[in-house]
Simulated assay, not measured.
Amino acid sequence: MSAAPLSPATARAHSNIALIKYWGKRDAALNLPAVGSISITLDALYTDTRVGFHAGIDRDSVDIGGRKVDAAPFTRFLDLIRARAGIEHRARVESWNNFPTGAGLASSASGYAALALAACRAAGLDTNARELSMLARQGSGSAARSIFGGLVEMHRGESASGEDAYAEPLLGPADWPLGVVVAITDRNAKRVNSTAGMTGLAERSDYYDAWVARAPRDLADMRNAIAARDFETVGALTEMSCLKLHGLMLSTRPGLLYWNAATVAAMHAVRELREAGTPVYFTIDAGPQVKAICAPEHTGEVARVVANVPGVLDTRVSGLGPDAHLLD
């Protein structure tokens, strides 16, 4: 990394949804994942974040969607960047999501990826993509993947320092175009955020050890299916990983139930579509929103069907998104 003069910077990063899910940490302090993951980045859902470091202010300030929020979690993250850049200036951060925040649509992933890129540039750091991925991971585990577009793999890593826990692209957005229909069933922030839900899993779930042990095989199977452009296998593995994740959540003491009635109805609608001949598969992160994955030519049909599911409030149609990038 090299330093340059300070000036504000604005970055955009897109949310991602995991096909092979991440849940659990092997080191909470460094935010190191217990398992690897594979995701797709969405072009329709993104965060724009502007960061400026300023002399003469005594504390960081953070606005999300025009509302001031507690800056403390972001100060810890910004301190990592200040230490690298050798500066002490406090920051003004302004961030906007074009989708509901904290509702199971990976706003923390796009948010911390955009923050990492904008803050590094504003601090005068010339960081490469791997460095950005490792930095974003320390804000949110899934943010490491939102540095990249297309299909992305996050490595669990083995090092205690976290130097081998980073994401890297498998295929670019144009290498294998896919469509995603997002069914929004609740716009409110979820009651239990992902960090709280993952805390102490080894003691809170009898299924956790099996989840961790199986992860390398699931990742290898998905990697092979993506390399072969085998959509049927990719879809089947995606649904399997989704349901296994939520089974793990249900087994956690106390049990985590993120679904609502519309979530379940949308899952059934996707399976009924598939049984009728449309290749489409669902996945759900830690929240109530359903994402239906299909070929781009089927997104219109899939969107019409899931939009008619009782309780679905809105739908978003997306393709695969690009790398995080500067807007200045």
Rank of each mutant, 00 (worst) to 15 (best):
P33V: 04
V69Y: 01
E88D: 12
I81D: 06
S95L: 14
Q138I: 03
N97M: 04
T49A: 14
G66A: 14
I57L: 12
P100H: 01
A136F: 02
S133W: 04
A123D: 14
A119N: 06
G124M: 09
C120I: 00
L32D: 06
F77A: 02
G162D: 12
I81G: 08
R121K: 13
G102M: 05
G124T: 14
F148E: 09
G36H: 11
A106F: 06
D60S: 15
G86D: 15
E153F: 01
S110M: 09
L32Q: 07
N98H: 05
Q138P: 11
S142G: 06
A72T: 11
V69F: 01
A72C: 01
S161L: 15
G65E: 12
G111L: 02
G139K: 04
G36R: 11
D63E: 14
N31R: 09
S161N: 09
H155P: 00
S146C: 07
V152P: 02
S110P: 15
E94G: 08
P100K: 00
N128R: 05
S140T: 02
R59F: 01
G102T: 07
N128W: 01
G52W: 11
A144H: 00
A119G: 06
V69M: 08
A118W: 10
R84Y: 03
M134T: 05
S161I: 03
I38L: 09
D43A: 00
G65T: 11
Y22A: 00
G141C: 00
N97Y: 02
G150P: 06
A109C: 12
R82T: 07
K21V: 02
A122F: 08
L105V: 04
A122G: 12
T75Y: 00
V51D: 07
G111N: 07
G52E: 12
S159H: 07
R92A: 10
F77C: 03
G150L: 04
A160Q: 14
L42D: 00
G66V: 15
A143R: 00
G24N: 01
S133I: 03
G52N: 11
E153V: 14
F53Q: 13
F53C: 12
Y46D: 15
L30W: 09
M154R: 05
F99M: 01
P73Q: 09
N128T: 04
N97Q: 05
F74L: 11
L45F: 01
A28R: 09
H54A: 13
H89D: 15
A118K: 15
H54N: 08
W96F: 13
R156G: 10
A122W: 11
A103V: 02
D48R: 10
A144Q: 01
S61A: 14
R137A: 10
S95Q: 11
I147C: 06
L135T: 07
G150K: 05
F148Y: 15
F53G: 08
G104F: 01
A122Q: 13
Y112S: 08
G52D: 15
A72Q: 13
A71G: 07
F77S: 03
W23V: 03
S108I: 06
I147Y: 04
H89L: 11
A116L: 07
Y46L: 05
H155Y: 03
T101P: 00
R50F: 02
G111V: 02
A123S: 14
V35E: 05
A144D: 01
A136K: 01
V51L: 08
G102W: 04
F148W: 10
N98C: 04
Q138T: 14
A83H: 10
V69P: 08
R121A: 13
C120Y: 03
I38R: 01
